[in-house]
Amino acid sequence: MRLDLVLELLDVPGQLLDVMEPISAAGANIVTIIHQRDVKTEKGMVSVQVTIEGDKETLDAVLNLLRERNVNIVEIDGVIQKEKIRTIIIGKIIESDIKDTIERLNNLEGVLVADLDLKMAEHPKESAAKIIVEADFGMKRDVMNKIKEIGEVKNFLVINEI
């Protein structure tokens, strides 16, 4: 059987090899591979489409190996694995440890802060930041609640999507 994957890789040399290696190690065949280096995602990553072939066990083993290596799997057989969640927060964002804010989100399983855009406001006003989180499908509520919780602790106004 065949499996279509869309992966996201860092645009640095050697990344593609890191993906091909577990595929062949597990004993699967690569049917096609499309690697578009000039089309970048928001995070500056490049997207790779691979179709692989093998029996079910082999294909499962490939997925496990890729996950072990923290390869970002965006789609499996046309099913999106990640969703994008946008939030804006207003408050004393830098003063209240922005790194910690991001870490608290990243600590959620299957959740990664993919983009952060900060706009400083003039003193004494409060600045605003846009956070884009990529999370496993179905995690949206959890992520939104987590951001709310952080907002309550750090006194941010949280503007979630509806």
Binding site: I88, I90, D117, K119, K125, E126, S127, A128
Partner: peptide, 15 residues
């Protein structure tokens, strides 16, 4: 508490 900064960030995303 809504400020222009937040409105601009939202706009950039189409929101």
């Amino acid at each position: 508490k809504i400020n222009q900064e937040s409105i601009l960030l939202a706009k950039k995303e189409g929101y």
